[in-house]
Design a protein around this nucleic acid. Structure first.
Lengths: 402, 402
DNA sequence: ACCGGTATGTCAGAATCCCGTACATACCTA
DNA sequence: TAGGTATGTACGGGATTCTGACATACCGGT
């Protein structure tokens, strides 16, 4: 039950395009277009993609027969005459997707509809030092809990893990905060116990997929999805595809150097972005400024103090925005994704922080014909990663590139 | 369930895969495999790509008929029996590719065979402040000079420009050192005068393509091609395709922040990588240390002084390696290309510098199962960009992704 | 000289997919 | 009721790849 990927390996085997592969890619792109733009008729899709209505019909036919899509009620468009279009949309009773978000001490699982609607959620705790078998048990338990509520067989399971992951083999390579899990082939293990294909990937990468499928990244060809909280990580969606380096590396933006003569990072190096933009930095600086509740400082608290007129808090708030903008600027210079979706503790900073970061970033970038980078915050109660883990299943089932 | 799609983005149409597109992609991948691995028989290609020999035959047939490839003499392989394979390779009289490298004050053009062999070279100078028409004339003159020597009609022209470029329209958006060229639609202008399709792109991006087609990047799926000299730029080849942000942006690694409290860059910001790793930095530091010929310092000179035992030179050499490694580390953390191909003045540092940079970079990266980043220097007499401009034509004629 | 073994290149039929045209359907307006 | 418009579908055609079978070419042994 662990066969799924056609091994997009990095190196020797040149892979060629096939008619059937092209068909699957086209199915994926049609699904993505539906996700991006909402319910669309076949004629809409034909106009959007430039192909004939007949072609769209043949592309979506298997999806309709498979129960993934349904035809909606005829809806009259803006035009005065003509046959009303029948919009296509994800079937309410379509095969759902199972999703798992695994962080130290905590597992959250969900059953998600193909349109992003959450059908069921379950979560469980475990000691961060628990042996691997316990963690696997906990993951399987939560999965079974959410799967029990569905009659339809799920399409697959997506697992998002905080840590270093080899997505091709579904193995956790290393995890600083859950050392017992190092080397654990979680994907195959869960797949065997659940009887469904399992797709494992990094937390920020899943988060980016979540943003792409059902967040602010919807419809975008390129953007960066950044998590900023107790640590920093990024998932990069570039030119219509999620970026994944060899062995699942990449996105470790937290340990890029921005202040070479700065303080020492827990990674052992100096001046990592994480040393100036995480919650820990915020708390240390708050303590230095003797702000109230410095040791429990959060972005929300700081934003409140700043709005209330505390000069020190205001200055720290501005510096925090500046430091966050640093990493954004570097990513924009290197990759120019154009859109940055921020998640984690920083989102509590609200528009006050978002605007500051955006202004800081733009002021540090050269003026171009294109607009400067755009900063967006993810939702406060953030299920993006969980949705992204579900989207992982769709992404692997319907690849967008051949 | 559906959050109203606030911005229906019909501007960016979803593009679908087609049989004919798939065929062209496959042709491109076969050509790339030949470039990567040298002459291969149809059977070799079939084994490499996993398709049948018959399919390979139908893929390469048009390329043979078009004169791009030829069948070599039957060559007996290692196996004892069997019909000898007929290797396929680029025809010596195949349609050549025209290439232009445009830098301030200087134009170099070449006519390149599909296998990377240079047929003719021409170059010309112009005043950096010359009006646009003069520069266009100069480019066209050099192109005509190299095209005159060929009987076969060239496949197209690739132009590499130092500056900001919009590759889709073939326009130079801005060029700091050649302000007269800002907004110049060089691609269409040259195309009209020469009567061939013209492909315009950034200098570092062309350099990366050159590395991919006929340099150390050959056969690699991901690598970064970095130019370090009077300025710093990078072309990123990621997962089998050259990365290009919206409007041709991206790769501006020279102005990523590595030392936020460092000196001011000419871009107006503080602590850009360029402020600590360009030749100008080297000369300033050399002057501070009162090294001989400090104001004309080059990597080659510094390497010589260091090797000769000058303690100050040695320390500066080490610091230069450290500073170069900084940017490499950042790129590796973000994108994990794994391979870094350095061009420009730094290549004169030889193995002494290469080893130092590699050690410095590896020491700043966490230990992983995969090997650390690998640093390579491009050739000293560097025609990579020119070859890359030629490769641009191939890349556009035979896209590797659909 | 002859024959089996092996590997290469090619041919023909089938399957898959997209394209273009034409046609049936459905709704509005006059 | 007739005309117009837009949607969805059926059919033939083109392009590509897959499968199986076949001719070719060379080696080694009898």
């Amino acid at each position: 039950m662990w066969p799924p990927s056609e091994t997009p390996r990095f190196g020797q085997p040149t892979v060629l395009m096939t008619a059937v592969k092209a068909g699957r890619v086209n199915q994926g792109r049609v699904l993505q277009a539906l996700h991006d733009l909402g319910p669309l008729s076949r004629a809409d899709l034909a106009r959007l993609t430039g192909v004939s209505r007949a072609t769209i019909g043949s592309i979506v036919q298997p999806l309709l027969e498979g129960g993934l899509l349904v035809e909606g009620e005829p809806q009259r468009g803006a035009a005065p005459g003509g046959k009303p279009a029948r919009p296509l949309w994800f079937a309410p009773d379509s095969p759902p997707l199972a999703a798992v978000h695994l962080v130290p001490g905590w597992v959250e699982a969900a059953l998600v509809r193909a349109d992003g609607g959450i059908l069921a959620v379950a979560s469980g705790r475990f000691r961060a030092t628990a042996p691997a078998a316990t963690v696997v048990d906990c993951v399987v338990d939560q999965l079974n809990a959410v799967l029990a509520g569905s009659t339809a067989r799920a399409l697959g399971v997506g697992i998002a893990v905080g840590g270093i992951v080899e997505s091709t083999s579904g193995t956790i390579v290393a995890c600083n905060l859950m050392p017992e899990l190092s080397g654990l082939p979680l994907g195959p293990l869960v797949s065997e116990r659940i009887g469904l294909p399992v797709h494992l990937d990094l937390h920020p990468r899943a988060q980016a997929i979540g943003d792409r499928w059902s967040g602010p990244g919807r419809g975008e060809q390129s953007f960066a999805s950044i998590y900023i909280g107790e640590a920093i990580g990024a998932g990069l969606f570039l030119n219509g595809a999620i970026h994944c380096g060899p062995a699942g590396a990449g996105g470790e933006v937290g340990h890029t150097v921005v202040d070479i003569r700065g303080r020492t990072c827990r990674c052992g190096q100096r001046g990592c972005w994480e040393t100036v933009a995480t919650r820990d930095w915020l708390r240390e600086e708050a303590a230095r400024l003797r702000l109230p509740a410095a040791r429990a400082m959060t972005t929300a608290l700081l934003a409140g103090l700043s709005a209330a007129g505390d000069a020190d808090a205001r200055e720290l708030f501005e510096r925090y925005a500046h430091n966050i903008a640093l990493g954004v600027v570097n990513l924009q210079q290197i990759l120019a994704p154009g859109l940055f979706i921020l998640h984690g503790d920083v989102t509590a900073g609200g528009e006050a922080l978002r605007g500051r970061v955006e202004r800081q970033a733009r002021s540090r970038l050269p003026a171009r014909s294109a607009a400067g980078p755009q900063i967006t915050f993810g939702p406060a109660h953030d299920r993006t990663t969980l949705l992204g883990a579900a989207g992982l299943v769709l992404s692997r089932s319907f690849p967008l590139v051949g």
